[in-house]
Write a protein that binds this DNA or RNA. Sequence first.
DNA 1: CATGAATGAGCTTTCATTCAT
DNA 2: GATGAATGAAAGCTCATTCAT
Lengths: 229, 229, 229, 229
Amino acid sequence: MCPLPELRQLAAQACGKRARRKDARPGELLDAALALFVEKGFAATRAEEVAKRAGVSKGTLFLYFSSKEELFKAVVRENISGRFSEWNTELETFEGNSADLLRSCVMSWWERVGSTKASGISKLMMSEAGNFPELAAFYQEEVVQPGNALIRKVLQRGVDAGEFRNLNVEYGVYLLLAPMMFLAMWQHAMKPCVSPTETFDPALYLQTHIDNLLMGLAVRPAAPLPREL
Amino acid sequence: MCPLPELRQLAAQACGKRARRKDARPGELLDAALALFVEKGFAATRAEEVAKRAGVSKGTLFLYFSSKEELFKAVVRENISGRFSEWNTELETFEGNSADLLRSCVMSWWERVGSTKASGISKLMMSEAGNFPELAAFYQEEVVQPGNALIRKVLQRGVDAGEFRNLNVEYGVYLLLAPMMFLAMWQHAMKPCVSPTETFDPALYLQTHIDNLLMGLAVRPAAPLPREL
Amino acid sequence: MCPLPELRQLAAQACGKRARRKDARPGELLDAALALFVEKGFAATRAEEVAKRAGVSKGTLFLYFSSKEELFKAVVRENISGRFSEWNTELETFEGNSADLLRSCVMSWWERVGSTKASGISKLMMSEAGNFPELAAFYQEEVVQPGNALIRKVLQRGVDAGEFRNLNVEYGVYLLLAPMMFLAMWQHAMKPCVSPTETFDPALYLQTHIDNLLMGLAVRPAAPLPREL
Amino acid sequence: MCPLPELRQLAAQACGKRARRKDARPGELLDAALALFVEKGFAATRAEEVAKRAGVSKGTLFLYFSSKEELFKAVVRENISGRFSEWNTELETFEGNSADLLRSCVMSWWERVGSTKASGISKLMMSEAGNFPELAAFYQEEVVQPGNALIRKVLQRGVDAGEFRNLNVEYGVYLLLAPMMFLAMWQHAMKPCVSPTETFDPALYLQTHIDNLLMGLAVRPAAPLPREL
DNA sequence: CATGAATGAGCTTTCATTCAT
DNA sequence: GATGAATGAAAGCTCATTCAT
């Protein structure tokens, strides 16, 4: 009867009310956006494509997000910055020793971010920061700074408890961050280009890093390290 | 015959031969392109800008490179190879202990690559790998693998000499690589977006990493590390 | 039944009957549209804004007016007619001399039309006549011609009474009309764009016009005006 | 031989060089823009249409004018503000009496602006000023103020020479301006909508205005004008 | 009747690429 | 070879209009 029975509308009629759809829209759009941003980059992802992937029209996208940049910010909030408070809680209520806490942090990041599409966002930001300074600033404030603060807390905990040697935590943060970010880059930039026969095991990669990190942080260094540089 | 003899051409005729200029064209274009790609990214660099920087017209650029993508490929190819054999020699003739060699490697990388435009190429590759899979493979083979081999050699030297603890050198490579790559990304992606008041000292960053790395690699770990994860 | 009973509806139910509201809808919409069209122009006024100002939803607007253009037509029709007969009566019962009548006419126009939103309609018609030829014709017939007739009558009264010099009243009409229309345009087109420090006093503007007009119309011109053009 | 021999190119080949075309481009674009802006308004005129009318592609328009607004400004400069200095010279070298100068000014405006498409610009500005404040400001500065200054000069000359009665020239300017602007509005807004049988003679309209204006400005007002308002 | 979620045509501006000179 | 004028596809965003609820 309807001259243009679109699939989406049929689906809508089938599954229930428009209202339900409406509530689901932002989430569907965010999912589509995350996938496409990670896959093709921010600039190369067209708004219309995101909309199509979410099963709506171009206009609808802008009904929920006032611009492509806002959409990106929402994606970041949804997938990263929104989780910091949860992580902070976990950190503060952790009862083991600091080495275990540190291990737990890294593995938890891997499970919840690193191994998921969400880690593509970090890669994205590195790639596109130069062309979208506003997004870069947003990311700095919303992700980098809180994230660094979290890591700093873990290190400080270890130092305060005498579990880690004394170190400049400001820069010590990067002892964790660099390996994680490198892994994110690898996943999304190089992995797709490497023949699948070459094995690279992220878990082993992370293990190697954590082990050496913790050995390095241990209170009694094995021997006086000669420094002549 | 030409109604508008441009200054550039006059200059060219004055200072030397046109023929020489002609031969130099592709190189000048590649230099200009490298500088701009690193500075602004691939997408944000306009072909006309590259041409202008090289002192030629837009049309001429396309005379030598059939497209912007081909130009990018040529830039990467041009700037990647050639240094590894030199480094390999340095490595093999190094006479100090392995810790010092490792330090020397990292600082040498920083001086010759990390702190120069050249590190922009790594950033470019990470950013654009998705759009140039063929090039990513080339980079993988031509840069990543030889580079990794070099690092592996340093680690193996330390292990063999009993200076470093025994470890999986395959993955140990990333203990050095990740911090360096993260620094390259940082330099070219985020640094321009961070308020210049925030201090980030690359030397201190690298120092922190090397120190911890070497402490971690030391043969007698400080204390038995409990592992419960 | 409605899960989200809006304030407006509650208010409507509280303060009176819904039936009354229903009948008032078109009028409220026309009022809102007049205000916005005058304030922002036809193109820059969004249908949704009109609806919101009238306290209804976008859909409702299109329930009463099949398109934005039809709304515009209705606004013009609603706000134009009806005043001429009153003015005609005032004119015919005026007891002073014709100069005073003329002054009175202009100042009365200023008070009742020129200084109010109503003068915005003239501006709108000028702006949009090209896009609404049908409406322009309507305006011509319903407003311009009766208005001109009124002015003509005033002039003719002065000429007949020997108070004004003899002149072609057909074109003399514009001696009054042009200054008034220019003022209307000014009010609605340029005034908002001029820095408020620049003073422009409409009363003084009109005074200057009327004074000169009446001096020009006076029966004994001061001196033989040489004409050589 | 050429697979897509476009008319324009054929014409180009026929009439001479590309270079000649290039010099002519801006002028052709300005002509096309003036015609379309006057005919359809600024907002309703699409850049592509202007280009097509000038026989070039969309891109070419933006090669010569960096935006649609800049195009408009150029049209204004070309057709109005560019002429003020010429008018000023004419005014200063005029040797007749001030009444004749004033007549001459008005008739000259009519011949060179009022009766041509250029007068459409005034209409345009009135219509669109609200939606394009930047253009309105430009027009104020570039056209309204210099134009007013010119008229003021004429009036002041008459007053200084004792030919005109003393009056507030600031507002006296509008005694000339209003009739001219009204005529411009009429031409472009209402004329197309009035049945061509109705006669309206712009020359007679202007004559009527100038005559009355000059009578009003004459030094000896005919009779004491009673003012009771 | 009323709603407001959804649509999609429409418009300006950019820029890699072409090709007549 | 070299030039640079010209092209036109592409993309983000707006808003009048529709229609399921």
